[in-house]
Amino acid sequence: MPYTLTVSPDFTPDHLSGWYIFNTWLQKTTGEAIHLEIFNSFLAQHEAIQDDEIDLIFANPFDAAMLVREKGFLPLVMAQGRSDEAVIAVSSDSPIIDVTELLPGCRVAVTEDPDVRLMGMIMLEPADLATDNVQTHVCDSYVLVAKQLLRGDADVGIFLAEAYDGLSNIIKKQLKMLVRSQIDVIHHALMVGPRLVDRRDELRNTLLAMNNDEKGQDILKNLRFDAWNSVEDADMEFMIDLMDTLNT
């Protein structure tokens, strides 16, 4: 029975081809059959995790606690220099120039991405805003978050910083960034589940050496980073503690 790799659904479709190429490389390198399963929503992915269908996951930090504490996953690696950051933006036509000018009852456009939503809501707290006093508009993608702002259907949007940066220049010119987080220590991690955990060291060493040859470098380029960095158990516990402190 093949192992199953999955990627947190917060990645845009243009990232996914890189993950298919990565999975082909991983199968060749490890000699194992690994199926890449892409889920359309966090809900569908969580159901698969609960049913013990996942063996390797590039996990959202929000899910890390559940994966480690309830499902016996352990961390392998993280993308070098790639922390998860959030952006708060409004339409360029908006009179708002500071987060603290936003009022309770305002319409907040978000995606289902849980860690970005959490970081974004923390950045709205200085305006006394919380999930119970704003109208949340959940969108399927960050482009749709931007469109809500441009159409005037939402007053403020919460973006994954990388997704905001990747918006077309035409869209970005019609938006105004109010805050960009500089948290630095929250990141996705590739994690290994119980069925593969006895090969953890081998997998980690293979991934850490990936940038030593041209082929590996090309595959990493498609994933949009230069190398993997090791994530030790203590690093993961620290991030889980951090997410715990923020999730209040």
Partner: peptide
């Protein structure tokens, strides 16, 4: 672990 963030005025 202690995390501090911007408070509301």
């Amino acid at each position: 672990t202690s995390v501090r963030r911007k408070p509301s005025r």
